[in-house]
């Protein structure tokens, strides 16, 4: 599965997200920011989770659960579109 991040969405190194289309701002933690960046690069959800498991000390089930929750949040805020 792949998610599209709108172009008017800018995220800074500090994890501050400005969605220029709506004027809303958000704050993300380090890993949240990384996930958005990987989505912006066009990676699929599967490759994102593979990458995260390589980098972080986390088991697959926990990550899947948390990723699912995170994407639900992004959808709720209308920050991603499913492709």
């Amino acid at each position: 599965m792949k998610y599209h991040i709108p172009e008017s969405l800018a995220i800074s190194d500090s994890g501050f997200l400005f969605f220029a289309r709506t004027g809303e701002t958000f704050t993300l933690n380090q890993i949240g920011k990384e996930i958005i960046r990987l989505m912006q690069e066009g990676l699929s959800l599967d490759s994102i989770s593979t990458k995260l498991i390589e980098t972080y000390d986390v088991d697959e089930i926990t990550l899947q659960k948390d990723l699912h929750d995170f994407i639900t949040q992004l959808q709720l805020h209308k920050l991603v579109e499913e492709q």
Binding site: T25, F26, L28, G32, D57, V58, D69
Partner: peptide, 10 residues
């Protein structure tokens, strides 16, 4: 160290 990904609206 892993932490759950989080997004918070301001």
């Amino acid at each position: 160290k892993y932490e759950r990904p989080v997004i918070t609206k301001n």
